[in-house]
Design a protein around this nucleic acid. Structure first.
Lengths: 210, 210
DNA sequence: ATCTCAATTAAACGATTGTTTAGTTTAAAC
DNA sequence: GTTTAAACTAAACAATCGTTTAATTGAGAT
């Protein structure tokens, strides 16, 4: 078997595990579940990942790998105004979280769970890095006098929290917004547009006023 | 043993289970864990609650019992302006969620998990009831012309999501806000005040403008 | 003193958990 | 064709899971 197919198989297992973890939780998903769903032998998961817990760790690293770089890059772009950067961040996070809602559901599910300290620190570090970048952008806008003197940390919680709230309680908001629960694509498209529009309105009123 | 002590014992088990579920998740907490921590015999949990899952259901009902009534009452109060009602709701939810962060952590952890449909519907129903009340209040303010024509459903997601975000990622915001992680009371007090102040500012700018 | 029944216990139940073992297949290298 | 190492498998491992059983305790009613 070629090395391309090998990594594809690893990735395939990761994606199957991601779906299962999101639906049944980490402890609720057995290694046998994952193996059956992925169509591989039970022992292959220990063979590839060493342990179930390490599989989760690799999944987190796999999903977060690209995101930090993109945010870092934009935050230092001198050609954008602070508000333009905020708009970009809104779009970036809404796209990311809505398109990977199952993964982000795992993150919120497992973050509070006292599993390994290693995983907990991994998530905390990534979150902290991203929040520090956003903090810098808002502070920059405040220094330039275009942003009001609002509570920066709480404002970041509002941005992330609003997106998480919508995606993590899909059922509630599907009923409330009269969206068909079964049609995932329709849900994503509608929620994506509406979240971006709302967050732009909300944060503009909060940061700049009118 | 008197009936008073009996209900106390039931409640004691519920509170111990709540702590464990919040820290280790539902599937991560064994019935033996709960029994040991509560200082009761293993079999007593099946004896009192029938099953582990039913224990979770009773815990949810136990915690939600009082909340719906209070919200219902306030939303029909003719002596308060729409904005005063919003301020009351902010205080109500911040107090409730911050003071019961472990329980609300369980709710977000277990809501997406495909456990029993019964529990899922129980949570959805309660959330829907509460959101409908808030929706009515905002709609009332819009009708009176004191609130802007904002996206009501998204605004509710912002209110709930901001609080949930802060309390569910305690570690991140403790580092960010330089609060001692170990001192739960200091954390609660500081977060409570700051959340209320932020949400008032945020929603005032969003709903009313300046 | 005896009966009654809920409360409580230790022990065991079968099922499932994550992981390991020992052996086989596969395919490229020589 | 033989060698070699990775890929893969079926079976078994000990541990833990939620739940049940059967026996015992304890206190109030008769």
């Amino acid at each position: 078997m070629s090395s391309v197919e090998k990594t594809d198989k690893r990735e395939h297992i990761l994606l199957v595990a991601e779906d299962l973890f999101a639906v049944k939780g980490f402890d609720g998903s057995s290694v046998r579940d994952i193996a059956n769903q992925a169509g591989v032998n039970l022992a292959m998961i220990s063979y590839y990942f060493g342990s179930k817990e390490n599989l989760l760790k690799e999944l987190i690293e796999f999903r977060f790998r690209s995101s930090v770089v993109a945010l870092e890059e934009k935050s230092n772009d001198p050609g954008m105004s602070p508000w333009e950067k905020i708009e970009w961040i809104i779009d970036f996070y809404v796209d990311r979280i809505v398109n990977n809602r199952r993964f982000h559901s795992i993150m919120t599910q497992e973050y509070n769970t006292a599993r390994s300290e290693e995983i907990k620190e991994l998530i905390t570090t990534i979150k902290m890095q991203n929040l520090e970048r956003i903090k810098k952008i808002i502070a920059e806008g405040q220094k330039k006098g275009v942003f009001r003197q609002i509570d920066v940390e709480m404002t970041m919680a509002t941005m992330m929290g609003t997106i998480t709230q919508i995606t993590n309680t899909k059922n509630v908001y599907c009923v409330l917004l009269r969206i068909d629960t079964a049609d995932e694509e329709e849900y994503k498209a509608k929620i994506n547009k509406r979240l971006k529009s709302h967050l732009r309105d909300l944060l503009h009123a909060h940061l700049i006023g009118k």
